[in-house]
Design a protein around this nucleic acid. Structure first.
Lengths: 164, 164
DNA sequence: TTGGAATGTCAACAAGGCTGACGTAACTTG
DNA sequence: CAAGTTACGTCAGCCTTGTTGACATTCCAA
């Protein structure tokens, strides 16, 4: 997008020291990013893995198990353990696919949607506070850098849903 | 820092939809962020926890175990398991503190420094590519938002070392 | 001299990754 | 229609990295 090499712009923002700061910023910020939902999950019998599953099922109701596997990048055995507990507790529901009856389409139940809202409210609150403090220009840069940091495959997953 | 509420600026960047995109961007980007070192570590007998320890020992040679515990936010038992293997393999060395002889000051050995460089080179390469693609303005925004996302305690740790 | 701080260590456990192997239903193709 | 492939589930076992609890040692400081 931005072409920093034009016009003799300084490349001082690419020093190793600056990159190290960026690396540590990712580390510390990610901790903050996950801490609020983690705290909520702690009380219940769920973990971060459940949060992720519920998040993406909420984002794309009716997505298949295979697609969710692609998004999460884990093995089916690992995901299955999580999904099973979500089924058992009535948070997620699987319906047989219409066109391909081998597929299980995943949906949140009202109870699952309530948990999802609970978790994402907490996470959004922190994100909103950070966005508000940083301002719209910083937020745009934030998104740009994060996108550039993704693997191409992950970026595709990310961009699949409507970009604002 | 930035005051987005002045001058009747639009708050459209604070919609739930935008916040959701930011949340997913963090998720996908963090995966990319850790993937290169993880691949290297995979061959060896170490994991991400070892990487973190080595990173912060390199950043602040001579830091104490207690301080490292604060930074990493894990239990001493968990850290100790990691440190022990690093000692055993001759990557990290502990010297008794000069003023307070209870403290163990941690240092990388040449071998440990070599691993650190190997890992951080990989991580920096990705970071550098992302920075370069995004440009300096985006990078500034990136850092601003991440900082605002940290817990105050984490932000203090982050800012302790010289900011560029 | 005594309490508390810094550290190490043993044991046990949990979450959430992984691999490998196997089974079944359903779609697809020759 | 038969054979192969795909989508999914499941059993078993392993690893890393986190947790708690308990206890020992060493040393600083009041």
């Amino acid at each position: 997008m931005a072409d920093n090499t034009s016009g003799g712009e300084s490349l001082l923002f690419l020093t190793d020291e600056n990159l190290r700061k960026g690396i540590e910023a990712m580390f510390f910020a990610y901790r903050g990013f996950t801490s609020d939902p983690d705290r909520i999950l702690d009380g219940l019998d769920y973990g971060r893995a459940h949060h992720r599953a519920v998040h993406f099922i909420n984002r794309s109701p009716g997505l298949s198990v295979g697609h969710l596997l692609d998004i999460l990048g884990v093995t089916k055995q690992s995901l299955n353990r999580v999904l099973r507990s979500l089924f058992d507790d009535g948070l997620v529901e699987a319906r047989v696919g219409k066109t391909d009856r081998r597929e299980r389409r995943l949906y949140l139940t009202p109870k699952g949607a309530a948990l999802e809202r609970n978790l994402s409210d907490a996470q959004r609150a922190r994100m909103r506070a950070a966005y508000r403090a940083a301002g719209p220009a910083a937020v745009a840069g934030f998104r740009t850098v994060l996108e550039a940091m993704m693997d191409p495959e992950q970026r595709r997953q990310y961009q699949k849903e409507g970009d604002t």
